[in-house]
Design a protein around this nucleic acid. Structure first.
Lengths: 344, 344
DNA sequence: CTTTCGTTGGAGAGCGCTTTCCGAGTCTGC
DNA sequence: GCAGACTCGGAAAGCGCTCTCCAACGAAAG
């Protein structure tokens, strides 16, 4: 097969016997080109196996047809295995899947970027500003993250998945985490549970915070101003430990809301080595409706989190903002729903 | 903050009072520059907030600092939800995590590409040839895929994860799937199982094929030339169905090897509604040691598949080939191991 | 004091593409 | 039959960068 240098516009022009400009016009479907030549040019393209060089094109058009998926981490994790845990989590894949479902049919590519240090974030913004990508979808993990602000200051089209920790005029999609947690509380209460505990996530990231406050509010509304709590870091192991801690606080617990499915899996595991059975003695409600939920034994009653849809919406929002940078800043909040399975 | 046009080399040169060439030399750390000027230039860089334009740089250096992660699918799936299932699977995330663990510290970026149709594959090769990325890591899903050959023909540095279906002179990393399956067979046999069945994956993809043949061979070696089989498509649901089918063939089964953990989860689910208990009446061995294995009830005995390590090795291999395209084609095969948990 | 060499920095070409600007044709309408 | 309006295609100027080539200069050598 043809090897060596890839054919350029110039080559096609030579073969077709026209100028570079004309070939460019034909390729980009610009009017003002004689149908005759049109055909001649396409023939030449076929003959030479020409493929436009995206780099060169982007350099002049200032459009890359690429968006970045930025995973913004904190400095602290820079070299620990946290990241690999993050990728193994279904969360990441669901986001990518959702994004790709819309980007793909627009012919837009996704470039993955991981930034930990502030320095890396600065570099990222610089790269983005110089046209490395048309925009960014941001997954901001740390509790407090300068990146969203940097992005807006730099004038970079960007959409967050999950609300920013501090108010920044930036587009985002999020889940009504508080409503979801309230749903869980009400389900547990309606089921007749009287001694309910909660296993929460870290107390500093927005999504986790919202689940805590939503649950707390709903419980208070039903007269449970206080309830035992333990917290984990969204991993299965931490959920298992938290369940034990909770049981130590109140061995007669008859219901527990766990802030994500992975930790709920851990909780279920911990419960398996106690006399209590799920859901008869103690009901368990998870959060996310991830694949772990159906895999669990017993299958987890959980709060559905339409992450794919949210990611898809984020992609759409980003594309729209790229198209019209002056567009009004907007956010779209998804409503969670309760998925009843066996565990509660 | 400074907005509008991003500063260019030209701007820095003007501020520093030197020529573009000199700034370029300083930035790229080329010697032959008076330490005095060196400092002046860096000052100017700081002042202007200059960040080199990667596009422009790549255009001339023919190096992008980006590798593509190509998910090669078949035309058939082009518009069905298969892809989103694929992303939700821990498999994808583990690969990304493994790749990033090495790419990140080399400052190399990952660009995600999904190609279904032959046309898209052709376009991809063209893009790659014209320097869109320095190389590609390929996840080839379909049973028979023209992409690997296209890549080598196009002279694109590429590494497959999982062996190609038909022999192609291309680098790849793979797992000794047959050995893993044999491990499972031997474990089941050593445990005293006499009526063993297998739930396999699709009969046309290499990894699945190897697991089937490895298991079959090991069983034959121990006098079990025939055993009941059912097949699924690597999803939990299909595993559940396959388990029922197997039980219908032989209700007295006392052991089953399931070709991946997700299907094993399904099998466990199916067994929960039968009188048999796992592992006492029937032992179950999975494959992959994915996060699903520990989440299962009972926790799954399974074959460990060091996917992160394999992906990391693929990244290293690719980087090496990019550096030296003439390097000899090589493949590295990882050895699986048995992880004993409770299910067998 | 001239020659030679090594060092340093500038000019400028060129990576492959798009796009503005023009000039050369082609058509109408009077 | 010719001005004016259009259509079409080419020349060429960049996009922001790297890197080769060369001029200039100072120092070392003869």
């Amino acid at each position: 097969m043809r090897s060596g240098r890839a054919p350029t516009l110039e080559d096609v022009a030579r073969v077709a016997g026209v100028s570079r400009a004309t070939v460019s016009r034909v390729i980009n479907g610009i009017r003002n080109v004689d149908p005759q030549l049109h055909e001649v040019v396409w023939d030449a393209v076929g003959q030479t196996g020409y493929v436009p060089n995206r780099l060169a094109r982007s350099l002049v058009t200032r459009r890359t047809g690429t968006v970045a998926l930025v995973v913004s981490d904190s400095e602290a994790h820079d070299d620990d295995p946290f990241m690999s845990r993050f990728f193994a989590d279904p969360y990441f894949g669901r986001v990518v899947g959702g994004l790709m479902s819309v980007l793909r049919r627009e012919g837009v590519q996704l470039a993955l970027q991981i930034v930990g240090t502030d320095d890396a974030k600065k570099r990222l913004v610089g790269d983005l500003r110089s046209g490395q990508a048309d925009g960014a979808v941001v997954l901001s993990l740390p509790a407090v993250d300068p990146l969203p602000r940097m992005l807006t200051d730099g004038g970079i089209p960007a959409v967050l998945i999950g609300r920013p920790a501090d108010p920044v005029p930036i587009d985002y999609v999020d889940l009504a985490n508080d409503t979801g947690a309230a749903l869980a509380a009400e389900h547990l209460l309606a089921r007749g549970c009287r001694r309910i505990g909660m296993i929460s996530g870290p107390a500093d990231v927005p999504a986790s915070l919202d689940r805590i406050s939503g649950f707390r509010r709903a419980m208070a509304r039903h007269g449970h101003g206080w309830f035992p709590t333990a917290s984990g870091n969204f991993t299965q192991d931490s959920g298992e430990a938290a369940m034990r801690a909770l049981l130590a606080q109140d061995p007669a617990l008859d219901g527990v809301f766990v802030a994500n499915d992975l930790m709920a899996l851990g909780a279920l595991l911990a419960l398996r080595s106690t006399p209590q059975s799920v859901p008869d003695d103690i009901a368990v409600v998870g959060f996310d409706d991830s694949s772990a939920a159906t895999a669990a034994a017993p299958p987890l009653t959980t709060i559905r989190h339409p992450l794919e849809d949210m990611a898809a919406e984020a992609a759409r929002l980003l594309l729209a903002r790229v198209e019209d940078p002056a567009m009004q800043v907007s956010s779209v909040i998804y409503e969670p729903s309760l998925v009843r399975r066996t565990s509660a």
